[in-house]
Amino acid sequence: MTKSSFITSVQTEKHSKIFWALSDSWVLAKRSIKHITRNLDQLFAVALFPIMFFLLFRYVFGGAIDTGDLSYVNYLVAGILVQMLAFGANYTTLNLAIDLQRGIVDRFRSLPMASSALLVGHVGADLVRNTMSSLIVLGVSFLVGFQPVAGPVEWMLVLCLAILFSLAISWLSAIMGLLVKSIEAAQWTGFIVIFPLTFVSSAFVPTDTMPEALRFFAENQPLTHVIEAIRGWLVGAPIGDSGWLAFAWCVGIIIVAMPVATWLFRRQALR
């Protein structure tokens, strides 16, 4: 060991606050994205789970479900996609809880970095993960007979809504990740919220046959609007008000959840 290496000078760069906020977010998003490729379990879980569901519903339950003029495959794709996006976006809860447990958050907090960057990093990684698994699920759906009628405009709308929906769920997940006390809790909190929400919706079956109260909930909750909108654009099913309602829900959730999560993250530092 040479002493000279300890006596060294380094230069910090001078940029605006906004530059650094973006730079920090980018550095941490790169980190979280590397996690995806180094920890392929998570990616497989996100993609395999919906494919399993897809095949199960398509071939086991599908025959017994009446979706009117629409073939069941064409009905199902939107539901499966949205369910997958929701579970994929929920990884922020788990990954944030892991960071908090492992103590690396203490290191981040002792650095002169933007405090929301860690959250942005995880949310961004969810988006990348969701993009990959969406492509896998769409690929499988074409193999089992999916026949979309969407033109370029509809595909763009689907893409935009999918991104906003993923961001909305991720920011909600960030709040959960900051509130749960353990990694175990982080693993099941998402499931107990997302599972009922996706089943009590129009994801797998039309809502007409549900009991009154359940049906009212199913038809008015945000996931149904997102599913109905995406289904409408993909296969030409009637959309009604679901299109703008879906966008409104997602944007509304992001506007509320983002500052709440950032505030919680700061507050946690100062317990």
């Binding site: 910090t12 492992r102 103590g103 203490d106 970095m113």
Partner: peptide, 26 residues
């Protein structure tokens, strides 16, 4: 800190690079 605050899934080099950039070094 009392317990190592490292990123398990990054390499040693990547850990150093990441924190260096968050310190705003060039």
């Amino acid at each position: 800190g009392q317990y190592a605050a490292l990123d398990e899934y990054l390499t040693g080099e990547e850990n150093l690079h990441m924190i260096g950039r968050l310190y705003r070094l060039n």
